[in-house]
Design a protein around this nucleic acid. Structure first.
Lengths: 335, 335
DNA sequence: GCCAGCACAGTAAACGTTTACAGTACGGCT
DNA sequence: AGCCGTACTGTAAACGTTTACTGTGCTGGC
């Protein structure tokens, strides 16, 4: 792997100065004769621009980072799938960070922005601490946050409306005659966990149903955790007729357990998931799920970031993506 | 977003030369007094090393690229999930490229290696042309290929054994008494498509079954394409008692169609997928699938690349990951 | 008392670009 | 013929590091 040719090599071969080479390569006005010489030399030597040197001088890396908790989570996957093409067409590369939902790792990513290896960052923190906020506002490069941040935070922000999402789901269950609606949530100290908890209480109230702590279980956002939570709930109260799950993975875990307990879905227990991941359409029975617009949020975040890179002066923007209820077999008696 | 402090700023504040600053920052022997001054200035100013300048001088970017056809494909996802932590612990960042299975895009990624924005590349090309091979062997940075390349190609290579995988699956179907085994494949001009086609013929022969072109359909590796292929097959021949699918997505599409045609799975038709993605365990019925070890292949590729970065002189290595048959409901009558 | 050797610290060059500025050649105008 | 403007091209500095080499002041041995 011998060292490739540099602008200097080309200049020698073409018999011109490195400045001329650079100008030709960048399409600046040049005498046709010179241009030809340079292009010829470049072709013959198989020249490729050194991106690092270029970045150093131009202060642009044409890279953007996306930091999420876990690539395994289909929600983030859906985001990446949208972010990638948007960035690609704008001429940016995508650098991926998986923080495993560890706050210290997220802080680390934020700090590493100072290394200037990317031009900007899209981040979807699962917990938002004051440290985060401070670092985000003072970050050395533009940042877009996917998720809820306190109002007034000076940062571009893309939000899902999980409150409305939970209302849609609970409303749907209520309409279909369900009255003892269980709730399987993720950790309350996470942003989505807290939001969904508050939303669930609200939604019950709107339907005129009482909030019964015995029907609520808190676990984690994984399938196995969902199964465990469902088991705990069923052991305590065999009479639930619906399960609202904070997550499709939790819902899949719940489906497994319901099957073990001989409960028919949806006849005995209706189940609603959240995020409308690919798994929802593939499960048995297919899973009614609240789409929080992961794909749209990803795309919006990428576009916000590009807009800010264009114009650093624009006011921070908040985009809220509306939820949609995708009804499938797990809540439809008739199926 | 004011410009951050550089090594020069720190040198001024600490009253030393930039060389000393650099030495302290890199842990080279320094008088304690000097070290203290530098560290203090660095802390006060919130200094962060500029990764770009560093890379230019050191010729290391600590970035590695992974190029795949489509992040949406759970197989690649499984790879990314393994690659990411391996690289992270070794101090490398992950740059993602999605080529949409367009050969020109893959060539582009290969060429862009000359820009030296990464130290190495892991690539999983879906079609391997001579152009690819030539560029891969002459690449300006170490490359690891996930997938089949011609024997003797001078490149680190991680392979699945889809031949053996198909044999496992067909053998399993045969053992369970299936005799009219259909085959839903992806494009024959792709590496996996061609390999699976050859393997299917071989496997039938081993079982003493005839190869019947009427039982074979070629489509694409997507769910919808799988559904269409299944439909074509069923319209032509209502008597298949098993479907071997080149892919879990194809298998899911086939399950949809079988349901529409009133065929029970597995009683009337047994179905086997391939890749053992998350979807296989979530589907209805759960899907028997051949695991080609996507996760292991990802991890192996990352490790091979790291090994080569350590020692550029080592001989090209080929790692073959053995397949495993994961039996689930879609082939088990008793369920 | 002198010099060798040591332990640092500083100077400057280099990595490969981009770009401000200075220089040159030439054609056309007066 | 002299001058000016035009249209380039070349020189050199800069981006922020790392590092080879040179310099300096001290310690210790004779």
């Amino acid at each position: 792997m011998p060292d490739g040719p540099t602008i200097t090599t080309i200049a020698e071969h073409a018999g011109v100065s490195i400045a001329s080479v650079s100008r030709v390569l960048n399409g600046l006005p040049t005498r046709p004769e010179t241009e030809r010489k340079v292009m010829r030399a470049a072709d013959e030597l198989g020249y490729v621009r050194n991106a690092v040197a270029r970045s150093l001088k131009s202060r642009r890396t044409h890279q953007i980072a996306f930091a999420m908790a876990d690539i395994g989570n289909p929600v983030y996957l859906a985001m990446v799938r949208q972010i990638q093409p948007v960035l690609k067409t704008a001429g940016y590369r995508l650098v991926l960070h998986s923080t495993d939902a560890v706050v210290a790792d997220e802080i680390d990513v934020l700090r590493s922005l100072g290394e200037r290896y990317v031009d900007g960052l899209i981040m979807s923190p699962i917990r938002v601490t004051d440290d985060h906020l401070k670092m985000i506002e003072n970050a050395r490069a533009p940042v877009v946050i996917i998720g809820l941040v306190p109002d007034g935070t000076a940062v571009d922000n893309v939000r899902a409306d999980s409150r409305e999402g939970v209302r849609l789901a609970v409303g749907h269950l209520h309409e279909r005659g369900r009255r003892r609606i269980g709730f399987l949530n993720g950790p309350l100290d996470t942003v989505p966990g807290a939001a969904r908890d508050a939303a669930f209480r609200e939604a019950l109230e709107e339907c005129g149903l009482p909030y019964d702590p015995a029907l609520v279980e808190v676990g984690d956002f994984y399938r196995e955790a969902g199964a465990q939570a469902a088991r705990r709930l069923l052991e305590r109260d065999g009479d639930v007729d619906a399960l609202m799950c904070a997550n499709d993975l939790i819902a899949l875990g719940a489906l497994d357990v319901l099957r073990q307990y001989g409960k028919r879905v949806p006849q005995d227990v209706a189940v609603v998931g959240m995020d409308d991941t690919d798994l929802a359409a593939a499960s048995w029975p297919t899973l009614t799920s609240v789409s929080l617009g992961s794909a749209e949020r990803g795309r919006a975040a990428a576009q916000l970031l590009l807009a800010r890179l264009e114009d650093g002066g624009r006011a921070p923007t908040v985009v809220t993506v509306p939820p949609r209820l995708i009804v499938r077999e797990s809540t439809l008696e008739t199926s």
